[in-house]
Measured scan of single mutants.
Amino acid sequence: MTFKAIINGKTLKGETTTEAVDAATAEKVFKQYFNDNGLDGEWTYDDATKTFTVTE
């Protein structure tokens, strides 16, 4: 399945996608990506659209 992340950061904005077997796996991938890029913020997840949003 394809999962999307919308990034609303102070220094980084945009979208990225990942292929994962479930939402928990996708969340781990996205959180690692955000940690690697120095992002920290509020997380939400919309199961209907398979979209994570992080707002810094």
Rank of each mutant, 00 (worst) to 15 (best):
T16L: 15
D22A: 01
L39D: 03
F30M: 03
L12G: 09
A48F: 10
V54L: 13
E15A: 09
F3A: 02
K31C: 05
T53Y: 13
N8K: 12
G14V: 15
T53P: 00
T16C: 15
F3C: 05
G41L: 14
N35A: 14
A5N: 03
T55I: 10
T17Q: 09
F34L: 12
A23D: 04
T17G: 03
K50D: 00
L12C: 15
W43L: 06
M1W: 14
D40V: 14
L12Q: 10
K50Y: 08
D47G: 06
D36C: 12
D40C: 13
G41W: 15
D47F: 06
T17S: 10
F3Q: 02
T53V: 07
T11F: 13
T25L: 05
G41F: 15
V29H: 13
T49Y: 04
T53Q: 05
T11K: 10
D36W: 12
D22P: 00
K31N: 03
Q32I: 08
G14D: 06
M1I: 14
D46V: 03
E56K: 04
D36I: 10
K13F: 12
T51K: 01
T53C: 07
V29S: 05
E19K: 13
D36V: 10
T25H: 11
T51L: 03
I7H: 11
A24M: 09
A20H: 02
K10M: 11
T51P: 01
F34R: 02
F3M: 03
N37D: 05
Q32H: 06
A5S: 03
I6E: 03
A23V: 07
V29A: 09
A20M: 02
F30L: 07
M1E: 09
E42H: 10
G38V: 06
A5G: 03
T18K: 03
N35E: 13
D22W: 00
D46L: 03
T17P: 02
L39H: 04
T17A: 07
D22L: 02
N37W: 15
V29M: 10
F52R: 00
N8F: 13
I7R: 02
K4F: 10
A20K: 02
W43G: 01
V54W: 15
D40F: 14
A20C: 07
K28N: 06
T49H: 04
Y45E: 00
T17F: 13
T49W: 04
